[in-house]
Amino acid sequence: MSFSLKKDKHGVIVVGVDGQLIVGNRQELKQKVLDALEGGGRKFVIDFTKTGYIDSSGLGVLVSLSKKIREQGGDLRLCGLNEDLQTLFELTKLDTLFAIARTSEEALAAF
């Protein structure tokens, strides 16, 4: 499991989550995104195309990051959720809190 950060030509930071996002690695993701926020990044996409599962701690970190990014006038979007992850977001009603796109291209185009 690992996280990758890339900045596109419009300055949007795309974070790839390879593996699972759970209690054991959520702090690593949080720190990477907060460092990018501190470095001036304001628009973020987290891409879950390569993610198998997310536990409630992982969901909690996304909620926390979304709040911190919004407080700085930024925006966080999610994409690449498989059918099971989409259901998890609907179950927890977090689909109402996040802008969720099908692909990273769609998420980037929506900024």
């Binding site: 536990d55 409630s56 701690s57 969901l59 909690g60 970190v61 909620v63 926390s64 709040k67 998890l88 179950l91 927890t92 009603k93 977090l94 109402t96 809190l97």
Partner: peptide, 21 residues
């Protein structure tokens, strides 16, 4: 219930609810 509107933006408290789903 973590899906109550006032609890939706809390970082924790979803574990048992997720388990049940």
């Amino acid at each position: 219930d973590p899906t109550r509107p006032e609890l939706l933006e809390r970082e924790d408290g979803r574990g048992l609810f997720v388990l049940r789903g």
